[in-house]
Amino acid sequence: MSIVTTSAGQAEGGALERGGASGLADVVETVLDKGVVIDAQVTVGVVGIPLVEINARVVVASIETYLKFAEMTDRLDITPKEGGGLSGLVGDVTGAARQVTSGLGQTVGEAGGAVRELGGTAGELGRTAAGTVNEATGRRPERPRRRRDEGR
């Protein structure tokens, strides 16, 4: 039925990145709090099991977000063309490095800028590592078959 390959990556030069959910963040966002809920109150035999707590919700309008945005403007002109920013290390596959000239002054507290960059890098590395571990353990088993398909 499916005509689409699920291999990660994108067509040569294309702007769209393709693939199944890869990396833990995608998986969490795709599956958590979804699906049919079977209510233990109505259905006999449902067992409570210990679930590892995962909080996928992000609040996008908060003081913290505001400060983060302000900090982004700090590094607008100083981020190196490649490898910087939010998505550098996780693989910004959209290809060409993009640069935006904001027209703002270049004066920047260099020490402050450097510290921020380091912080960002550490965060990205952490996330990349998590993704890698995940991929290492997440082997893709063969898909279930459908009996009907064989007769089609």
Partner: peptide, 29 residues
């Protein structure tokens, strides 16, 4: 992480060949 990945891999793989209603992760009977 491996549990969540296994859950999704199985359901996505199944969805490619047949309709499937995902049941919320963590449902045990």
């Amino acid at each position: 992480p491996a549990d969540l990945t296994a859950y999704e891999t199985l359901l996505d793989g199944t969805a490619a060949v047949a309709p499937v209603l995902p049941v919320r992760f963590g449902t045990v009977v």
